[in-house]
Amino acid sequence: MTQLTLAKALNAGMRRAMEGNPKVIVMGEDVGKLGGVFRVTDGLQKDFGEARVIDTPLAESGIIGTAVGLAMRGYRPVCEIQFDGFVYPAYDQIVSQVAKMRVRSRGKVTLPVVIRIPYGGGIGAVEHHSESPEAYFAHTAGLKVVTCGNPSDAYWMIQQAIASDDPVIFFEPKRRYHDKAEVNTELSAPPVPLHASQIVRDGTDATLLCYGPMVKTCLAAAEAAEQDGQHLAVVDLRTLSPFDLGPVYELVRRTGRVIVVHEAPITGGLGAELAARITQECFFSLEAPVLRVGGFDLPYPPARAEEEYLPDLDRVLDAVDRVLAY
């Protein structure tokens, strides 16, 4: 067991993947000497060389487009997009090329590309540095989308994503980069499959569904609710495409009440898809409509207003009160 921040855990995971497979390469803006703007790739270029840790020109479409070619040549590129709001120049390459290549080649071309994206708000950043674009990618057939909420998942999930033969969009909760927790790096194999959700707190009164940066928020909300005698379960979804909802349905059937929490805007967000599926699968167990707590349908606000914009402990508890009132 070792104590690692989420950022260091990602770094250690990538290091282990690179040691295990010489075809794994890291590429992105400032990932070399600087170690990335969040230092997630710190030291990798020093140890693996410039041929495997590539400082790229500032061109996101170029990062993903060349990763496609490198993957076709047998490499396993791990691409860093510096911030969530900078992924859109690469959107065409991701959606039109990366996602479709396997099916259009009838399975002859697979693209084991990992696209790491620091996402979400809460760090007081300027425009385009705090967004949650996961629904765009989860909506696209051919991509897999995952996100980690704690250092242990960061360490293992990044390795699992790199080992995946399918393209994986890997969302990293940037405001949790410096959260520290125990990581068992001694294990020979990942403790949990990549595409599995996890019940991180059991409960009887209502279920909170969340992922990435909101896991910590929801756990804190559940802790606070406990003091009021409300027993909330919390599920860290971890995998956003495909979903793993078997454990969720079981919890919902027990608790009868569900709240989905994400930073992304409500309309057309993943909460809508989750609500639809839960309603379909657990209709007769539901005591209340599935509620959603998320960002407002606004462009991400200026940083000094983001505390008002983002779901927080109080907004979650407000939803708990509403869902329990039915």
Partner: peptide, 13 residues
């Protein structure tokens, strides 16, 4: 779009 794929493939070479 394929010009970038070609460039990446060439980097692999």
């Amino acid at each position: 779009a394929q010009t970038l794929h070609a460039t990446g493939y060439a980097m692999g070479i």
